[in-house]
Amino acid sequence: MAITVSIELNRELELPAGYDEVFELLADVPRSASHFPKVHQLTDLGDNSYRWEMEKVGVDKHAIQSVYACKYYADKDAGKITWEPVRGEGNGVVSGSWTLKARGDNATAVKFQTSAELTVPLPSLLKLAISPVIKHEFNSLVDTYMNNLKKAF
């Protein structure tokens, strides 16, 4: 038995760095991922695709681990970095984008949008209890990621 939890996140922030510097960091997936909390392993699958394996959350047989892979596309002229799911990798399907806009020479406005579906091996009876916990954890990780990115500049 398994349950699937859907998550949609949107964040906007301004980073204290020039457009080129911000784009370079966000388009470099391993470098950007180094600022994301609780990443157990990031594996280069080639062709700008990466498998994300997050740290396990929970205890023993009740531990949940998110594993998913995405292919990344960077278009500096359009100010967009997007990612699409690589099917058949792990228990998650994740897509999303960064949209960047220069705010003078030393600031860049960024919009982060992501959608995720995570399938976890739990009885469907637990969906109502577990779904908010998973969503909260995902929100917390993304908020920490945003704060880490601010500190990086």
Rank of each mutant, 00 (worst) to 15 (best):
P37A: 09
S140A: 13
K38D: 06
A78M: 13
V57G: 06
G88M: 08
F112G: 09
A116W: 00
K135C: 07
L45I: 05
I130F: 13
T82D: 06
K71D: 07
E84A: 12
D28K: 07
L25R: 05
Y19F: 06
S34T: 00
L26P: 00
V5P: 04
E53C: 08
Y68T: 00
N147E: 10
N48R: 06
E12G: 00
E8S: 12
S140P: 07
S34M: 08
K61F: 12
R103I: 15
E89N: 15
Q41W: 06
S115M: 00
M146H: 06
H40G: 01
E53A: 14
E8I: 09
I3S: 10
Y19T: 12
V120D: 07
D47L: 02
L9K: 05
F23L: 06
C70P: 03
T43D: 02
T108R: 00
L126F: 12
L13P: 02
D47H: 07
L141P: 04
E55H: 12
F23H: 07
I7P: 11
F153W: 01
L122F: 14
R31P: 08
A102Q: 07
L45S: 02
L128K: 03
L128E: 08
V5H: 10
K61L: 11
Q65E: 04
E24N: 10
G79L: 08
Y19I: 10
G92R: 01
W52L: 04
F23N: 06
D44W: 08
A116R: 01
S34D: 05
T82E: 07
L45K: 03
A78R: 11
V67D: 03
V67S: 05
G58F: 10
A109T: 14
A33E: 01
E137T: 15
D47E: 14
E21I: 13
F23R: 03
L141R: 14
G90W: 01
M1V: 14
I81Q: 03
T108G: 04
T144Y: 06
R87V: 02
V59F: 15
A17G: 07
